[in-house]
Nucleic acid binder design. Structure first.
Lengths: 257, 257
DNA sequence: GCAGATTATGTCAGCCACTGACATTCGGCA
DNA sequence: TGCCGAATGTCAGTGGCTGACATAATCTGC
């Protein structure tokens, strides 16, 4: 876990991953966000330090993420079974599924933490910056922060970057990731709207901006993946900047001045 | 099938949906596009009209899409099993999977046709239009074309619109759909690059533009889904236009002039 | 029209992701 | 110490998806 983000202490508790009850017209209650960090009442940084139970849970979760990460990187995502992951950590398969709604979720866990940190950064951007500036600064800052003080452990930049590649290579993961991204975008919309004192239902700009921002980011990720050798956070930051710089030109009327 | 797009005559043939062979480092050969329309050599509008075999295949495929569509809309996506779909058309489950790589694919088949038609429209836009204009015009035109002359059958606008809603309501489908979209974006990149005589590896503008275009579109879709009552293609077109109009303002420096 | 090559389909057996139900064990707390 | 609730394990079952093989259709050249 990167030093900046308070580790999401996820508790195993019931949520239905994705499958919806049969016999329902157009899928009722479909959008179960699998709820990372449920944070039971009376947890969440309440004065009391977490008890043994809490710590144990966190350790198990970390171990699962770590084991999964290792296996995925060596055997591929599809080539790794949940049983294997569980076996490494020495828990039952059933327990695995109490921590993660599905196989995708373990893989994306590290990414998810990084995204949370980005949101944090965005919230802290000074009010003078205009929305686009704030977004751009926040994403660069978050990569940079995660890059420095990298411990190499799970949740580190290294992991996150390896993950970007794994995701882009694995169709299932890519799909799941893209879905997560769109949820993150909704948060971005509300943050931006708050900053500017707008109602997103009235003014479409936050929505559109968030969408554009997300897509430019992903372009940069893709570009980073294609470019072998260019690893490391700096390369990623450079690419992000470069892609953002092309936003204006791309939307400009005339490309062949 | 909408009158405009030549019905993709898909042949059941081997492809691996998603799962990758075990024992592979970071998933080799990962990006198997499940290959709609494989078009065996010597098919593809060769003078010879399609034989009985070809026609039968097409009929089976259409029947599967139609049956699936109906079941999904009444029972939900998760609430419908592949066996049920196959049973309606009276083929074996195995046969189903020879036509579609997975359950997602049947659901997205109609959408996929509409997207193909959009690409066709884009290719036909006059060279005078600048890239953004061309994209915008093409998407509006494709919705409009599909809207007129709607037969209400499978592949019609009605189906496509119902589908947009189903997708947005069903996490699994949404994920799969988003992934398809990104593939479609790659095509858009090459089309735009050709139009402007650019090398997408050199000039980032096509890539960035395609990404932005895709994300704005999806915003519009989402907005259309939220807005109950406002059904029909016209409403969709209006929303698309409105979202595009916010592109400039959203990226502009100052939001509180 | 008929043999023989192709190709679509069915059957079967099996892997794996995922879930509900119930029993057991373990940590928190009086 | 003893009770309560939460975490875990076990088990059995469903459903998506695949490989292998046999069978039944089409298509081909004659």
């Amino acid at each position: 876990m990167a030093a900046q983000t308070s580790p999401p202490a996820t508790a195993p508790d019931g949520r239905t991953a994705d499958g919806t009850a049969p016999g329902a017209t157009p899928d009722p209650a479909a959008d179960h966000t699998p709820d990372r960090t449920p944070d039971h009442p009376a947890d969440r940084a309440s004065g009391r330090p977490p008890g043994l139970r809490e710590r144990k849970k966190q350790r198990t979760r970390d171990a699962l993420v770590h084991a999964a990460h290792g296996l995925f990187l060596t055997q591929g995502f599809a080539g790794t079974t949940v049983d294997e992951i569980a076996a490494v950590v020495d828990v039952s398969q059933r327990t695995f599924f109490r921590y993660f709604a599905n196989k995708d979720e373990v893989a994306l866990a590290v990414m998810a933490d990084a995204e949370d940190y980005f949101i944090e950064c965005l919230r802290r951007r000074p009010a003078e910056e205009n929305p686009l500036q704030a977004l751009r600064a926040a994403i660069v800052q978050s990569w940079r922060d995660l890059g420095s003080g990298d411990l190499g452990g799970p949740g580190s930049i290294t992991s996150a970057l390896e993950l970007v590649r794994l995701i882009e290579e694995t169709p299932t993961l890519l799909a799941a990731h893209l879905r997560r991204i769109t949820q993150q975008e909704r948060i971005v919309v509300t943050v931006i709207a708050e900053r500017e004192g707008l109602d997103p239902a009235e003014d479409l700009r936050p929505t559109v901006l968030a969408a554009v921002f997300g897509s430019v980011l992903r372009s940069a990720h893709l570009s980073w993946c294609d470019d072998q050798e260019k690893c490391g956070p700096e390369a990623m930051i450079t690419l992000i900047e470069r892609h953002f710089d092309q936003l204006g030109p791309a939307l400009a009327g005339d490309w062949r001045h």
